[in-house]
């Protein structure tokens, strides 16, 4: 057990190091995220201008939602799909499969490293900047912070599994870029990261709440606003965990299936 922990710990560390190796890219990612946050937040601020409420949110709650959902989405935005697709396209997958590590778990562990870096060097600075630029409604109860952190962590798990599914689709399609961009769009639209879920037309909002994408940004923002507390908040976390578990099972089944049919060229 201890040995396994050490092994996977070192993979997570590898993810952290890999992410830090290209420092300019970390800076660019932060700049990019900052720019979108300021632009998107400003547009929503203009929309809320002079209104007492938008849907169920006050203008301050709306700014808060936009900031928190965006910060959370930067942590849950995985690149596992691209990574797996590239491994397949380049033939590296053949040697990966010879290694004594389970590849999906290896990719997820590295993604945890990436998420940890993103949380510290992207999400927290973004939160500070958002708090300086926009009026925010801070949580009143300390426990909310723990709920939000747990929710983001579960979001990373859900995002990683979705990424693995998309990446595995590349085994059939031979290339993954198209599907990755499709996934990114679906995430942007359905997670609440750009358009608050509560401002969507009712039918759309209900549909979005059932999908796993809400786990990536909406749920953390909703918890931060303390719109769901106590048992209801726990219910949201359980729903996130359930999605992570369901997707993990689907990933596992598809992985076994994919391995039987897999053809790796080159390598």
């Amino acid at each position: 057990m201890n040995g396994a922990l050490r092994t996977w710990g070192s993979v997570v560390r590898l993810g952290v190091l890999h992410h830090f190796a290209w420092r300019l890219d970390v800076v660019i990612a932060l700049l990019s995220a900052t720019m979108v946050l300021v632009l998107n937040g400003s547009v929503w601020e203009a929309v809320a201008d002079g209104q007492s409420r938008l849907g169920t949110l006050t203008p301050v709650e709306l700014s808060t939602y936009v900031v928190i959902a965006w910060c959370a989405s930067r942590v849950t935005a995985t690149r596992v799909d691209e990574n797996l697709g590239q491994r397949h396209a380049s033939g590296q997958l053949a040697t990966d499969l010879l290694k004594p590590l389970d590849l999906p778990s290896y990719l997820l562990a590295r993604d945890v490293g990436r998420a940890a870096v993103a949380a510290v060097v992207t999400a927290l600075p973004l939160l500070a900047l958002g708090a300086w630029w926009f009026p925010l409604a801070w949580p009143r109860q300390p426990v909310t912070w723990a709920l939000v952190a747990g929710s983001v962590a579960l979001g990373v798990a859900v995002g990683g599994q979705i990424g693995l599914l998309v990446g595995m689709a590349s085994f059939r399609l031979r290339r993954v870029t198209g599907l990755v961009s499709l996934k990114e769009v679906a995430t942007a639209l359905l997670s609440g990261a750009l358009v608050p879920v509560t401002l969507m037309p009712d039918a759309a909002a209900h549909a979005v709440m059932v999908l796993p994408f809400a786990a990536l940004a909406h749920v953390p923002a909703w918890l931060f606003l303390e719109r769901a507390t106590g048992a209801e908040a726990l219910g949201l976390l359980v729903a996130q965990a359930a999605w992570a578990a369901i997707l993990a099972v689907v990933v596992r089944l598809s992985w076994w299936r994919a391995l039987r049919h897999l053809t790796v060229e080159g390598g």
Partner: peptide, 19 residues
Amino acid sequence: AWRGDWALGAVGDLVTAGI
């Protein structure tokens, strides 16, 4: 030659526009 990816890319672009 990469028709599958090409078609998905086109759909992706269209949906991206939708955001």
